[in-house]
Design a protein around this nucleic acid. Structure first.
Lengths: 240, 240
DNA sequence: TCCCGGCGCGGCACTCAGTACCGCCGCTCG
DNA sequence: CGAGCGGCGGTACTGAGTGCCGCGCCGGGA
C-alpha cells in the first residue's frame, strides 16, 4: 500500500508524512474502484479523512498523486549525474542513471503495475507521465551536453542519446509492467540499454573481443592552412 | 496571421473555417499581449466576436488553439507512412515522415517562432506539446514495428529509432526557432537526421560529394561503429 | 506556569476550464 | 411552403486549483 520513497523500517511510526501516504492510498483505492476521472478530489479527501485544502498542500495537482515518488527519483538522478566524474564513458553513465528509475519501479511491483494500467487508459495521466519522462530525459541530455562539449554537434548528440536511452528504458520497463511484473525488470532494462550503448557508446560493448580503438578522419582541402588541419584533427580526436 | 492548414487561394471566401481562424488570431493576440495564463477563454471569444460555446466546438481545450494544425499534420504523417511501400530503408522512410513536420513549421515561420516562445515559458503548453510529439513518435514507432517485424528485439529497435528521429528533428527545429527562423530549417533537420540514419539506417548516408579536389584520409579500426566513421567524416567536411 | 509566536490543518469563497442542455436562426430538401 | 437540420449562442452546472483566514497544537521564553 505504502508508496513513499522514504524508508521506514524501525519502530518509528511513519516519520515522514502520515497524511500524504493516506492520500495516496485513498486515491488509488478509489481510482481502481470507479476510475480516475470518476473520482473527485473531494472523494479522496473524504476517504482519507483530511481537508480538501491539505490535498493540494501535498500534491500540486490531482495527477501528482499518481506519481508520488518521481520527484524524489528525479532528484536522485540529478544527484547521481552531478556526482559522477568525467572519467567513465558518458553513455554508460546515463544508462546507469536510467537504471535508477527502473529500480524505483521494481521496489513496488504491485503499485507500479496498477499505476501502469491507470496511465495506459487515462489520457490525462499519460500526458502527465510524458512530462515526467521529459524531465528525466532533459536531466540526461543536460549531463551529456556538458560531457560532449567541444565535440561537433554536441547538443544534437546529447539529445539523441538521451532520447534513445529513455526509449530503450521505457520499452523494457513497459514490457515488464505488461507482464504483471514477472521476471527481472532490471535485467530487461539492462538488455535494452545494451543496444543503446552498442550504438552510441565509446566502446561497442556486446561485440566484445574487438579493439576499443576509435576512428580518426582527416580531411584536408588543398591550400588549407596547416592550423586548420590540426584543428580538425583535434576535433576528431575529441580534444577540446 | 492565418495558420489554417487548408489552402484558400481563389476568390472563394475562406471555404473552410472563418470563425476558427478568427479564434486562433484573437487567441495569439491576447497570448502575446498579456500571456497565456492571464488570458481566459472568455477574453478570446469576446475579441473574436463569437460565443464561448463555439470555442470548444473547434478546439477541445484551451491548449489546442496554440497548435491548430498539428492534427492535420499528424494525419498527413500517418497517410504518408501507410502509403510508403516496403521497398526503401525504413529508417529513411521515417526520417522523410519527420520532415513533414518541419515543413509545416517552415510554412509559417513567424507563427512558429511566436508559438515556440509561448510554449517555452508556459509549463502547461510544454506538457501539451509533449503529448503531441508523443503521438508523432508513436506513429513512427508503429510503422517501424511492422517493418522490423521478425527481427530480434523489433519493438525495442523501433522505439529507439523513433525516439532518436524525433529527438534529432526537434533539436534542429528548436535551434532554428531559437534563431528566429533565420536560415534553412529543412536543411538543418536534414543534417540532424543524417546522424540518425548513419547510426541506424541500412545505408550510411548519401554524403553528397563536394569538390573532387579534397584529399580524404580515413583511418578506421575494426571496433569502431560505422556511424562514428560517418560522423567524423561529416564533421571533417564541415557539414553543420 | 503562563504567554506567545509559528505552523500545520481545515473551511470558505472564488476563478476558470470544460460540459450538458436548450433555444434560435437560416438553409435546404421534399 | 413547411419541415427537418445543422451551426451558433446562452445558461447553468461540475470540478480543479487558489487565496485567505481562523483555529488548535506545540515549543520556547520570561
Amino acid at each position: 500500500m505504502s508508496s513513499s520513497s522514504t524508508a521506514h523500517g524501525r519502530g518509528d511510526r511513519a516519520v515522514k508524512p502520515p497524511i500524504r501516504d493516506a492520500l495516496v492510498a485513498a486515491a488509488f483505492r478509489l481510482f481502481l474502484e470507479r476510475g480516475y476521472e470518476q473520482t473527485t478530489v473531494d472523494d479522496i479527501v473524504a476517504l482519507a479523512g483530511v481537508g480538501r485544502r491539505s490535498f493540494f498542500r501535498y500534491f500540486p495537482s490531482k495527477e501528482d498523486v499518481v506519481f508520488p515518488d518521481h520527484e524524489r527519483c528525479l532528484a536522485d538522478m540529478t544527484d547521481f549525474l552531478s556526482a559522477s566524474g568525467d572519467g567513465d564513458d558518458p553513455v554508460r553513465t546515463v544508462c546507469d542513471a536510467a537504471r535508477l528509475v527502473v529500480r524505483m519501479y521494481a521496489e513496488n511491483p504491485a503499485f507500479s503495475v496498477q499505476r501502469y494500467r491507470l496511465t495506459k487508459q487515462v489520457p490525462g495521466l499519460r500526458a502527465y507521465e510524458l512530462s515526467v519522462v521529459w524531465r528525466y530525459e532533459r536531466a540526461l541530455a543536460g549531463y551529456l551536453r556538458t560531457r560532449f562539449a567541444g565535440l561537433r554537434d554536441s547538443t544534437l548528440r546529447a539529445d539523441v542519446v538521451a532520447a534513445a536511452v529513455v526509449a530503450a528504458h521505457n520499452n523494457a520497463l513497459r514490457s515488464w509492467l505488461r507482464s504483471d511484473a514477472t521476471g527481472d525488470a532490471e535485467a530487461a532494462v539492462d538488455h535494452a540499454l545494451g543496444h543503446v550503448q552498442a550504438a552510441f557508446g565509446d566502446v561497442p560493448v556486446p561485440p566484445a573481443g574487438e579493439d576499443p580503438e576509435d576512428v580518426v578522419v582527416v580531411v584536408s582541402r588543398r591550400g588549407a592552412p596547416l592550423w586548420r588541419v590540426v584543428q580538425e584533427l583535434e576535433a576528431a580526436l575529441g580534444r577540446d
